[in-house]
Each structure stands twice: as structure tokens, then as C-alpha cells.
Amino acid sequence: MRTITASEARQEFADVIEAARREPVIIQRQKRDVVVVMSVDEYERLVHLNVAEFQRFSDRVGAKAQEAGMTEDVLRELLDRED
């Protein structure tokens, strides 16, 4: 992964875009990483990965709740009590 300064990124923006199409580019300000520039394909891959991971988590929680006797009817009762 390439790392450049914010000043370099401003001066060589077209090059940063081309580099980011191949791999993420870290931009630093005052020697601290502040942003990452990446391709749209990589961004979409990460978003879909997070959605899939959240779905797996939700499925695990749902299965445990079901094993513990939680049903939609029980959940409705609990929610009705709160109102």
C-alpha cells in the first residue's frame, strides 16, 4: 500500500487516482495517516463484506434467541408491555 503526504496528493492528484485503482493509497498529514483513497470496486467489496458479516451475526443471535424460547409472539408481548 502506497503512502504519500497531503501535499503530494494535491500536487499529483491524477497519479493518486491511478494508483488507487490498483491498491489503496494512504494520505498523511503531519506524519499521521488521515485518509485512504481506494477504487470503487474495493469500496463496494468492503461494504458487501460488512453486510454479509452483519447478516451472519444476526443469524447467530436469532438462532440463540430461538433456542432460548424467544418467538415472535413472546417478543410482541414484551414490546406491548413497554407501551
Rank of each mutant, 00 (worst) to 15 (best):
M1G: 15
R2Q: 14
R2V: 13
T3Q: 11
I4V: 06
I4Q: 00
I4T: 02
T5A: 08
T5G: 11
S7D: 09
E8H: 08
E8G: 01
A9N: 05
A9G: 01
R10K: 02
Q11P: 01
Q11M: 02
E12G: 03
E12W: 00
D15F: 02
D15V: 00
D15E: 12
D15G: 01
E18C: 05
E18L: 13
E18P: 00
A20E: 07
R21G: 02
R21F: 04
E23Q: 14
E23C: 07
E23V: 13
E23Y: 12
E23I: 13
P24L: 01
I27S: 02
R29S: 05
R29P: 01
R29D: 01
R29F: 06
K31H: 14
K31T: 12
R32A: 06
D33K: 08
D33T: 08
D33E: 13
D33W: 04
V34H: 05
V35P: 02
V35G: 08
V35N: 09
V36P: 04
V36G: 08
V37D: 00
V37K: 11
M38C: 07
S39K: 02
S39H: 12
S39L: 04
S39F: 10
V40N: 03
D41R: 07
D41P: 15
E42C: 10
Y43A: 11
Y43T: 01
E44M: 09
R45W: 05
R45V: 00
R45I: 03
L46P: 07
V47Y: 09
V47G: 07
V47H: 08
V47M: 05
H48Q: 10
H48G: 01
H48W: 07
L49Q: 12
N50V: 03
N50H: 12
V51D: 10
V51S: 01
A52H: 04
E53P: 05
E53I: 10
F54R: 02
Q55K: 14
R56D: 03
F57N: 12
F57Q: 15
S58V: 06
S58M: 06
D59W: 11
D59M: 13
R60P: 00
R60F: 00
R60H: 05
V61M: 09
A63I: 03
A63Q: 10
A63C: 07
A65Q: 14
A65E: 08
Q66E: 15
Q66H: 08
Q66P: 00
Q66C: 09
E67T: 06
E67M: 09
A68Q: 09
A68R: 07
G69M: 08
G69N: 11
G69R: 14
M70S: 07
M70C: 02
T71L: 07
T71M: 08
T71S: 11
E72C: 01
E72L: 14
D73R: 10
V74I: 14
R76P: 13
R76E: 14
E77R: 15
D80V: 14
D80K: 13
D80W: 05
R81Q: 15
R81F: 04
R81T: 15
R81E: 15
R81V: 10
R81G: 15
E82K: 12
E82I: 11
D83Y: 00
